[in-house]
Amino acid sequence: MESIKVMLVDDEQLALIQLRKMLQEMTGFEIVGAYLDPVEAIEMASVLRPDVVFLDIHLPEIFGLRAAEMLNDTCPDVEIVFITAYDEHAVEAFTLNALDYVLKPLQRSRLAITVERLKISIESKRKDRKTSDPVRIHCLQTLQIEFPGQQPETMKWRTSKAQELFTFMFHHRGQLVRKSELFELLWSDFDVPKAMTHLYTTIYQVRQDLKRIGVNIVIRSLSIKDGYVLDAAGICIDTVEWERELRRLSPVSDTNVAEHQRVMDMYRGDYLQDAGYLWSENERQRLRTLWLQHVQLLGDYYVRQGRMTEALAVYHRMQIQCPYYEESYFCLMKLYDELEDRVAVEEQYKRLTLVLSEALDTVPSPKTEVWYAKWKGLRPQLESGT
Rank of each mutant, 00 (worst) to 15 (best):
C236D: 11
F170G: 02
R207V: 05
V218H: 08
T255C: 06
V52Q: 01
I235P: 00
L143R: 00
T154A: 10
V177M: 07
E241Y: 03
L65Y: 10
D209V: 12
Y35K: 02
A85F: 06
F29I: 01
P76L: 00
I224N: 06
E327A: 15
P380F: 01
G33D: 07
V218S: 10
G385T: 09
M1D: 14
T362N: 06
S160A: 13
D133Y: 12
E61Y: 00
E310L: 09
G64L: 03
R244G: 08
H171Q: 11
M44H: 13
S357K: 13
V363Y: 05
R49T: 15
E88Y: 03
T368D: 03
L298S: 05
R307Y: 04
L8M: 07
E92K: 11
K127C: 13
K225E: 03
I203Q: 03
E61G: 00
P105E: 01
D341W: 05
R317L: 08
I219N: 02
L182A: 06
S221L: 13
S365N: 01
E2Q: 14
S221M: 08
Y301V: 04
E12T: 04
L292T: 09
H294F: 06
Y315G: 03
E181R: 12
Q141G: 08
K376V: 15
Q144S: 14
